[in-house]
Computed example of a mutant assay.
Amino acid sequence: MLDHTDMSILHELSKNSRIKMKELGEKVHLTGQAAATRVAKLEDSGVIEGYTIKVNNSKLGYLIHAWITIYTKSTYHQPYLSFVETQENYVLNNYKISGDGCYLLECKFPSNEILDQFLIDLNKHVNYKLSIVINKL
């Protein structure tokens, strides 16, 4: 079970995973060594699975951020899943969901033309509802 200090460490690492252990320790009221020991335990227990970077997709030319709710046409989902695997340039995340739809795709596209072609190809496997992100608040 995680205590308040572990939760504080996770919070600080989620803001900046490159923080120096000494600075992390100061933020959570531990020594740098004690913070490093706690982080190692969180890694060993699987609470921390890895570290990553946050990419600004707009600066990479991906100006369209879309959420696509997927409605499968049958109970056989493999053709859709295989299609999604081939679209790694555009698909950020593919979530299996409950409620409205079967899957929720988070995607990025450099243009409306490429989005349109993606949707044409997607519609060969499933039906969908498209939502475009206007602004992140």
Results as ranks from 00 to 15, higher is better:
residue 7 M to K: 15
residue 7 M to S: 12
residue 10 L to K: 10
residue 12 E to M: 07
residue 20 K to Q: 15
residue 21 M to V: 02
residue 22 K to I: 14
residue 22 K to P: 00
residue 23 E to T: 14
residue 24 L to N: 04
residue 24 L to M: 04
residue 25 G to W: 09
residue 25 G to S: 06
residue 25 G to P: 04
residue 26 E to Q: 15
residue 28 V to A: 06
residue 30 L to I: 03
residue 33 Q to M: 10
residue 34 A to N: 07
residue 35 A to F: 03
residue 37 T to W: 10
residue 39 V to Y: 07
residue 40 A to W: 02
residue 41 K to F: 01
residue 43 E to A: 00
residue 46 G to H: 09
residue 47 V to Y: 14
residue 50 G to E: 01
residue 52 T to A: 13
residue 59 K to M: 12
residue 60 L to H: 06
residue 61 G to F: 09
residue 64 I to Q: 07
residue 68 I to H: 10
residue 68 I to G: 11
residue 69 T to F: 10
residue 70 I to S: 04
residue 72 T to D: 01
residue 75 T to D: 11
residue 81 L to G: 11
residue 82 S to N: 15
residue 84 V to F: 02
residue 84 V to I: 15
residue 85 E to L: 14
residue 86 T to Q: 15
residue 86 T to R: 14
residue 89 N to Q: 12
residue 94 N to Y: 03
residue 94 N to G: 03
residue 100 D to F: 09
residue 103 Y to V: 01
residue 105 L to F: 06
residue 106 E to A: 06
residue 109 F to A: 09
residue 109 F to H: 08
residue 110 P to K: 01
residue 112 N to W: 04
residue 118 F to H: 09
residue 130 L to Y: 01
residue 130 L to D: 00
residue 133 V to L: 12
residue 134 I to N: 12
residue 137 L to T: 11
residue 137 L to E: 08
